[in-house]
Design a protein around this nucleic acid. Sequence first.
RNA 1: GGGAGCUUAGCUCAGCUGGUUCAGAGCACCUGCCUUACAAGCAGGGGGUCACUGGUUCGAACCCAGUAGUUCCCA
Length: 881
Amino acid sequence: MEIAKTYNPQEAESKWYPYWTEKNFFKSTPDHRKAYTIVIPPPNVTGVLHMGHMLNNTIQDVLIRRARMLGFNACWVPGTDHASIATEAKVVKLLADQGIKKTDLSREDFLKHAWGWKEKYGGIILEQLKHLGASCDWSRTRFTMEPELSDAVIDVFIDLYNKKKIYRGVRMVNWDPQGLTAVSDEEVIHKEANSKLVYVKYKIENSNEFITVATTRPETIMGDTAVCVNPHDERYTKLKGKNIIVPVVNRVVPIIFDEYVDASFGTGALKVTPAHDINDFNLGQKYKLPVIDALTQDGKISEAAGAYVGMDRFACRKQIIKDLQEQGLVEKIEEIKNKVGYSERTDAVIEPRLSMQWFLKMEDMSKPALEAVLNNDVKLIPEKFINTYKHWMENVHDWCISRQLWWGQQIPAWYDDKGNTVVCKTKQEAFEKLKEQNAEVKFLDIKQDEDVLDTWFSSWLWPLTVFDPDIIKNGWEKANADLKYYYPTNDLVTGPDILFFWIARMIIAGKEYTGLKPFSNVYLTGIVRDKLGRKMSKQLGNSPDPLELISKYGADGVRVGLLLSSPAGNDILFDESHCEQGRNFANKVWNAFRLIQGFEMGTNVSQPEASKTAIEWFSNRLSEQLEIINDHYSKYRMSDALMATYKLVWDDFCAWYLEVIKPEFVDGKAQPIDKITFDATINYLESLLKIMHPWMPFITEEIWHLTKERAEMECIIVAEWPTVNTQNKETLQAFEVVKEVVAQVRNIRQQKNISPKEKLEVKERSDVGEQFSRFDSVVIKLANLSSYSYTKDKVEGAFGFMVMNAEFFVPLTGNINVAEEKERLAKELEYNKGFLRSVQIKLSNERFVSNAKPEIIEVERKKESDALNKIKAIEEQLASL
RNA sequence: GGGAGCUUAGCUCAGCUGGUUCAGAGCACCUGCCUUACAAGCAGGGGGUCACUGGUUCGAACCCAGUAGUUCCCA
């Protein structure tokens, strides 16, 4: 059979993914084996696969595939998140494009549109994950807003309300004027911005004097209800008891004195706008100031402002500055840098706003979750995130869980027309309960709370409800078999940006409802950036399309490319050339296979000595490296595990092992290979394919089936992970010497322009060399020697080099430039003498000898004697020239 | 403003308990090769004051203190 010279990924990908799913290799049901479980961080149902998803899903797939091979019952649960703000915003925009305003629709009609859209486009991202090779159990796919999971969310709300952990109240919240909803503190992203600090003159009542106030938000002047200064600020003590006239609206407001004000910022005088700043709000509470809400919910100037009504807040900011300047009320304008809050979901500038919201008390609930991480019950990888986590958990605020949206789980709170509130699942129940408080209540007058719950209030249950949506209702004792089997899950792989949004809250919910952690290890990936270190974003257009990458480099190539340089917790600077490297590696593997499958087995061929020793070496090498790879995995050092695999295959197997055992050509014809060597080689290839499989699932499955006839279910995806055998350290060391000798001979060829085809002679002068003589045949083959012999005497007229303590000679009479050779040897001698000196200084230092560990001293003594030998040898060589 | 991390070759990173021949890898680079598996390759090679300053130690990339730059988190 003719096999293509380059590997064709598309063919293998389109063949094996369907095969794996048809044969149910991804499917998991509880059995006698130990479970290994990962729940996917559910991507937004409206999302499109980006490089961040590629990275963390590749890692999850590597972990799950290896666990499967190690004999665990591996279960990777996929699904999507309803992402209330993001999805609602998308649907609103889509409807707007069709000329439909959300405000013209009823809640029911809007939700119909939203569900219709979700059914049509939702879950595209899961289809994309299949191209990557993700081995999720698709039969378990979940959606955070499907009825069963929504039920659980409602149950949790009711339960926590009954436990007095959820309350409702008017608070200053982060308002998203574009999404028209409150968002939690965690959903506000603070970015540095260039702002104008405007110094505005406020007239002092009954006087011609002014007090100057510095503000970055002049458009809120209409909401000012006081001016505040620090009581210790001597500049202003004379103003005690005075009133101030707010410009634009000419409102008379008091001047108040409070230590909150920083006398060194601006003019030391602060305008107090209780409706539009949390600190001003607190001052307002303290001094009983009126609250004037000068903005509407969509960020325009409100009726209450009394001026600029209906104008956008930013347009108003410009206009008001201009107008104040014209009135001579602007003293100066400074350019400053400050932090401005943006909505995580809509990128609109957040407006602090007073409103009635639902909150979850976090103080008590966060304690067991903090404990779980601090005592290592839940491990964060890398560990540096423990500090961040601790800091957040110790300073956690109550969680604003209501959102003024329709897409999501509607809050199960019910109100009658007298202001009574009950929390329960159905209107009927609400009716019964409200009757206890209000005997005349009419069923039709009962209204459900209009708001929905924060998306994270559903995703914090994800590791529980994907297995048992009834867990909240039934409790952990009565949990179903799935949950008891798979929970706590093993590893969670996600970005550090959702450490608080999601990870911390899952631990809280897990502890609250099962008393157990939701997962044992959290692997925090970095953020994927472009090679200039910029975050990948649509605006910059620097984010490659993952599916295009896959079609260009193959799924295996992209997987390897992504993981080659992505240490946990560090950002990865993505460069397409990494994928190229991944593709090249796949091609290398492909060609190693081509070589092996082209071997022609001879019936009466005896095994060459070189092949025999190469086999002896490689079996040790394979075990040695596999042990290292296993160790990297156990420490979640993914890049290291991959790199060790890469080098084992490319360097050890291809560059050394295959080069030794590959039959020679005689008269243009490849010689047949002996059976022992052939079988050993196939064996090694199979082991290597298994070790490579988690990284490169497609090519390994493809070659696995090309090496042998396989039964229907005999696939590499379920093959057993190779085991580590004890290694002979001496063999491994000896081969390192072999590599060095071969490299030295090649080096001489390069320097002297001797063709690789010309056979050379090598003589070794050493006391110990012969104990490794079984490796001589390997050297002869790889260095292309005519002979390899031992001598007790030095060899005249030859190039020399040293490896360890042995001297090697390549006789090349007539070819030697004596002066050049002398110079080279002199240099080497100089170096070794210097080295000897430093070792001897160390050894003659009494404090070193008395303080250092004995084995360290032993090493130094060895260095000394080795150096002495080497110097002697070099001197002899020099003398012979 | 508070906190955490990072700074090692041109780039991306290892360096785990302070101790093997003046610090390792991959990529990139340079030189020579289309040698019957692979030019997506082979062989060989060059490249580093371990951010800076000081301290501890027989010994520091590693421990401590300070400085600078940088990233992230929180307010």
